[in-house]
Amino acid sequence: MNPIKGLIKKDFRITRNLFFTWAGAIILAMGAGVGLSAYTSQPAGTLPVIFLLGLVHIVFAPIMMFVTLNQEAKTQLWLYTPRRAVDLIVSKFTVIFSYQLIMQLLLSIYTAFNLFWFGRDVYEQIGPRLFGEAAIILNIALIVFGFYFTSCLTFLWTVYHSLKKRAKVLRWAAVLLLVFGYNLLEGLILSYDPLSELIFKYKVNVISNAALRYSEEKWSVMLEPAGIPVIPLLLYGLLIAVLLGLAAKLLDRKVEV
């Protein structure tokens, strides 16, 4: 078995149970959404479920990453390998990314199911083409956000564990300082109007707004297009790379067993 494959297999193996539990819970929630909506004869009731599940999957990847990093932190002996730290991290990313894809696929199917079949009388109907476009863009955005947060978390985790020799308060202080400092910087940059205008200039219009409307004792769902800015997505992609690079460097040179 080649070493990268070995790493991926290991990472899959140690997170598998958690993933299955998560997927089970989500499927249960989806079922409950449909069941409850059918029981109350309000098929639009699945919209909040879709919305909520979408939100939850922004934090899914970071949560998985946090859990698996802490599995390793018990002994830190995952560092006992000649592989570069970036390989160790990328392996975890690969596994979590595939989980994320599976979950988003489930969520997309669930949405399609509600839109075109279960809730077809109350959901404003859009054609498969528009739905497909929206699904692709929204899925990409969800992945980018999820993995941006995952990278932040990974980086902060390595900062915390680089400071193993220091007092706990100090380690947390360093992490919090980074978070606040970064947010301040981000705010500052965005408060510079020409720059923020540029960042938000290019948008793709896809169906991404949904609103519930109540009339004649029936809830229905209105769908509207909204602009999704493209450049921030690219910037987040760049940030992911930078944060991972930094995390790998710390993991290689500073985090000890």
């Binding site: 193996r13 599995q71 002994t75 390998t81």
Partner: peptide, 25 residues
């Protein structure tokens, strides 16, 4: 290196443990 700590993943079998170490070295 043989650690005094528990170096393995609980969910692994003995064979999986060996396969993993074998893949890395």
């Amino acid at each position: 290196y043989l650690t005094e700590l528990d170096m393995f993943y609980d969910v692994f079998t003995v064979q999986e443990t060996i396969d993993y170490v074998a893949s890395q070295f």
